[in-house]
């Protein structure tokens, strides 16, 4: 296996979103692994956490915040940034809860009143229908 071929394979892996490459020919095997840090978690594996936060408590003044349009919900300002709000967090009227992306245009969704985020009902990057509930909110008295 000559160095030019190895360079070509390194370029191919580098330019791709893949993380590992293995090449075998004529008794020689080349293995390349990208250093990517932590393994991403599977969205399905993270999902149950959302449900558990819904309290089975007595009646409270709950309301939902719904998606205004069909689009993609973003719970962070940018990938890797901390979430805009988390379960149990107190929010004030006008605070940005999430962003809805449709055709490269981002629309901020803001809290209508003061309250607490009782549950986050969606995952970042998920497609949401117009009218779909995104957050369950508990209003302040």
């Amino acid at each position: 296996m000559d160095n030019d071929l190895i360079k070509t394979l390194i370029d191919a892996l580098e330019a791709s979103s893949l993380t590992e490459l293995e090449y075998s020919k004529g008794g020689a095997t080349l293995r390349l692994v990208k250093w990517t840090g932590a393994l991403p978690t599977h969205p399905a594996a993270a999902a149950p956490a959302v449900k558990r936060t819904e309290p089975a408590a007595p009646w409270r003044p709950f309301s939902t915040v719904n998606a205004p349009v069909f689009g993609v919900v973003h719970l962070q300002r940018s990938p890797g940034a901390p979430p805009l709000v988390t379960t149990g967090e107190a929010v004030s009227a006008g605070q940005v809860l999430c962003m809805i992306e449709a055709m490269k245009i981002f629309t901020e969704l803001r809290a209508e009143g003061d309250g607490t985020v009782a549950a986050v009902l969606v995952q970042s990057g998920q497609e949401v229908e117009a009218g779909q509930a995104l957050f369950r909110m508990e209003r302040s008295r």
């Binding site: 349009v69 069909f70 689009g71 449709a102 055709m103 245009i105 629309t107 117009a130």
Partner: peptide
């Protein structure tokens, strides 16, 4: 898109 506001309208 909305003909007045030009807001995107997928669906």
């Amino acid at each position: 898109e909305d003909p007045d506001s030009f807001a995107p309208s997928p669906g």
